[in-house]
Structure formats: C-alpha cells, structure tokens
C-alpha cells in the first residue's frame, strides 16, 4: 500500500513532463503520421516513393555515412578527454572539464558559425596556411561533408564523454594494480584490461551520438552549405520549400522508427542511468 502511494506521487511529479511530451510531441507526430498516409491521396504512395526516389535514397545513405564517421571520430576524441578527466592530475582534470562544459554553454548556431569562420575558404585556417605559404589554393574545409563532420563531431563530444567517463570511474583500481603486479606493461593494461572494462560506456556513447547525429539539422545546414543535405534538412526542404508534405512526413516517420529501434537496442546494452555518469 505504501509503495503504491509513493509510486503514484512520483508519477504526479512526472505529470507536467508527460503532459508536455504528449501535447508537444506525441499528438503532433500522430498528425505527421496521418499526413504520410493521406497526402496528397490516401495510400502507401509516399512510402513507395521513399523506397524508389534516388534523391531520398542518396540523402539517407549520406546521412548514415556522416553519422558513422562522426560517431567514430567522437568516440576516439571523447575517450581521450574522458581518460584525462577521470585519471589525470588536478590541472588536467580542470582542463578536461573546460573542454567538456564550455561547448555546452554556447548555442549550436554560434558554434556552427564559429566553425564556418575557421574553415571557410577565406576563414582563419586557410588564410593562415596561405600566408605561411603552405598552400596556394584554399582547402575545401567547409560547405561540404568534411565541414559537416567537423562541426557535428565537436558538438557531440560532450555527450559521449559522460557515459565513457562513468564506465572508467567504475573500474576497480585494484584490478589495474593486480595487472601491474603480474608484470603487465602500461600499454598492455590499457588495451587488455582498461579498454575492455569500458565497452559498456563505449556502446552507450556510440548509440547516443549516432541517434543524435541522425536528427542533426542546424550544423549540416550551415557547414554543408546545401551541398551535403542530411535527412532532417531534407524533411525541412520537403515541407517548407517544395509543398510535398506527404513525402516529408513519410521520411520523418521512417527516421523516428529507426531511432526508436536504436534506442530499444541501447536499452538492452546499458542502463539509462549509466549514460548520465
């Protein structure tokens, strides 16, 4: 009886959020689902188009490719930052915290334009390299897939640091001491003991980053310069620029189902609490 009252009270605490999610996401999304089956006419026509339209296909493939590359780049960088954050000296820890938290405080738009200022043809990097005589023609760093990957990687690193650092923190120090005592070198301990013990965090981080990346809109729109459109931008273009609401809606539904499947997969590997750290 007592347990039941506490549970219902807890649900009461969650109620505003559930109500908001229902009104702001679930109900409108049901509308989007309806569009995908009814616009311009009732039927599966938009899903058939989605399967055959070469433009949609190429956008989906590009999105998957960018997301995979970004996920790999984020995991490597975030692993290094998390390592310093968890096991570094106090100064190193502070630096790592700075690297993790500052991006959080700056809006995604500001950061995308910041990267544009760095990477564009007349941006900082190209101007420096040209004035130093390293290159004669500017490198194509922005307004293409590379720019999108750089911007997205930078944005997503903090989200991967937390689950990885959480996994690193839960390693029993004595296990590492034991490996040392048995004569293992530091490199060997890192690769055969330390890294395998953080696999859970790595899987969680990979899924979070990948799922986030799938829905990216602002960064690819700015740093891709319209030349490397990703799925979210395609939805925007279909709905706001060409009045093709049905196809935009069908793409949205497929994206949401795909992300839902990934999240379900994530739950099998890792407890949500571990992701926060």
């Amino acid at each position: 009886m007592i347990g039941k009252t506490i549970t219902s009270r807890k649900i009461l605490l969650l109620a505003p959020l559930l109500l908001f999610l229902g009104l702001a996401y679930v109900v409108p999304f049901l509308g989007v689902v309806r569009w995908s089956f009814t616009m311009p006419e009732v039927g599966l026509g938009q899903y058939r188009a989605l399967m055959t339209d070469p433009l949609v296909q190429s956008v989906f493939i590009r999105t998957l490719r960018i997301c995979l590359i970004v996920t790999a780049a984020v995991l490597v960088t975030a692993y290094a930052i998390a390592y310093v954050w968890v096991r570094g000296s106090s100064v190193q820890r502070m630096l790592a915290e700075f690297c993790i938290l500052v991006p959080f405080w700056i809006s995604v738009l500001t950061r995308a334009f910041g990267w544009l200022a760095m990477l564009s043809n007349r941006g900082l990097i190209n101007t420096w390299l040209q004035s130093a005589g390293v290159i004669s023609e500017p490198l194509a760093l922005a307004r293409n897939e590379l720019g999108v990957i750089i911007g997205m990687t930078h944005f997503l690193i903090p989200f991967a640091v937390f689950p990885i650092a959480s996994a690193m923190r839960s390693i029993d120090e004595r296990v590492l001491l034991a490996a040392r005592g048995m004569g293992a070198s530091r490199t060997r301990i890192f690769w055969t003991v330390f890294v395998p013990l953080t696999y859970g965090g790595l899987i969680g981080a990979a899924l979070i980053v990948f799922v986030f990346a799938l829905g990216f809109f602002v960064t690819p729109a700015i740093l891709g310069g319209g030349r490397s459109v990703m799925v979210a931008e395609l939805v925007y273009l279909r709905i706001f620029q060409s009045p093709d609401w049905g196809l935009g809606a069908a793409i949205s539904v497929v994206l949401v189902l795909f992300i839902g499947a990934l999240l379900a997969l994530m739950r099998r590997f890792i407890k949500p609490a571990h992701l926060i750290g």
């Binding site: 029993d172 296990v175 001491l177 034991a178 490996a179 005592g181 048995m182 395998p196």
Partner: peptide, 14 residues
C-alpha cells in the same frame, strides 16, 4: 613479479 592476492580478489571481470 610477486604474486598478489588482493582484498576483494581484484579478478578481471571481463
């Protein structure tokens, strides 16, 4: 290269 048995064993969990 001494053998060591730790409090709590410190086995490699993986």
């Amino acid at each position: 290269s001494y053998g060591m048995v730790f409090q709590g064993y410190a086995l490699f969990p993986h």
